[in-house]
């Protein structure tokens, strides 16, 4: 079901409430890592969920940022999802649109159908400037077998232009790795143990090594993102970037983790959203 997620600067908890079919509201419940009611609400008799929390890298001093998360439409599972997305798009209840594409399923029919829906909507509005396309799972490309992020982004751009989008902004991202790195950084800051098993930590460590080994190659794909301003000198962000974080059986400096985090593209997305909000 659709989720409305509101960024409230400085809010320490993340809280949620569900709106029932008959209009009843559940009341705010604090979400925790151990116990989340969201999956119950998603399968129950509710029409929407509201969430409030602080997106730490988005500043609301001009306007408050709100994400309207639509259920992923997929013909084979639930036709209603497509109708809901269509309804949200046609009701004009948004100022900006973030479209997530999947590197591993590029060009599939479900994606094409949804892109067509968005392209038709923008054709009516005539405004192509307030949309960003994320190419998620860009780290699924095998760089050692000459699969190139920049080439893939170029291919996605051409595809989008063919679909009717004028000069699309495309950001290659690694959502999963970004989340894991941010959880590691938060654990380091709070001086608590990493909330991952040793097997998962070893996998994360391996992925960090991989993205750092190819940081220039990934950086090339991010270079043309407007207002991303990618640089690999994160030392100004933290006082002691030489500090070590142990992930699995590897020691990384804080600087290496922040470098890897920049390569995930999520900071570029945040800057892009922030710039759009400020304009």
């Amino acid at each position: 079901i659709p989720m409305k997620i509101t960024d409230i600067d400085g809010l320490e908890e993340i809280r949620a409430q569900a709106i029932h079919l008959d209009g009843r509201v559940s009341g705010w419940v604090s979400l925790s890592d151990e116990d989340s009611c969201l999956s119950d609400w998603n399968t129950g008799t509710y029409t929407s969920i509201e969430i409030q929390g602080d997106f730490p890298n988005i500043d609301n001093h001009v306007k408050r940022m709100v994400f309207l998360d639509t259920p992923g439409p997929n013909n084979s599972t639930n036709m209603l999802h497509g109708e809901l997305t269509h309804k949200i798009l046609s009701e004009n209840g948004f100022t900006f649109l973030m479209f997530v594409l999947n590197t591993t399923q590029f060009g599939v029919e479900d994606e094409r159908r949804l892109l067509r829906m968005v392209a038709d909507k923008l054709k009516i509005d005539g405004d192509h400037s307030s949309i960003v396309f994320l190419v998620n799972k860009i780290d699924a490309l095998d760089l050692e077998r000459d699969e190139c992020p920049k080439t893939h982004v170029g291919r996605v751009k051409s595809y989008l232009v063919e679909m009717g989008f004028k000069t699309p902004i495309v950001i290659p991202v690694m959502g999963k790795l970004s989340l894991e790195l941010r959880v590691c950084l938060a654990a380091h800051k709070a001086q608590i143990a990493l909330p991952f098993s040793s097997r998962v930590q070893c996998r994360i460590a391996h992925e960090i090594d991989y993205v750092l080994a190819f940081k220039e190659t990934y950086g090339m794909a991010l270079k043309y993102v407007p207002s991303a301003g990618i640089d690999f000198s994160p030392s100004s962000l933290h006082q002691n970037t030489a500090a070590n974080i142990r992930i699995g059986d590897r020691d990384f400096t804080l600087e290496e983790i922040i470098e890897a985090e920049i390569i995930t593209g999520i900071p570029a997305l945040e800057r892009c959203l922030q710039a759009s909000l400020a304009s």
């Binding site: 509101t6 993340i14 408050r64 994400f67 649109l97 399923q105 479900d110 799972k137 989340l179 999520i266």
Partner: peptide
């Protein structure tokens, strides 16, 4: 005043993970 961002994606695109990454926690 709200700046509303509609998030649109086909299934399995990882959009919830991206929102979680921006929140810094796997809560959604």
């Amino acid at each position: 005043d709200e700046f509303v961002v509609a998030v649109v994606a086909p299934m399995s695109s990882g959009k919830t993970t991206i929102l979680n990454a921006m929140l810094g926690k796997a809560l959604l």
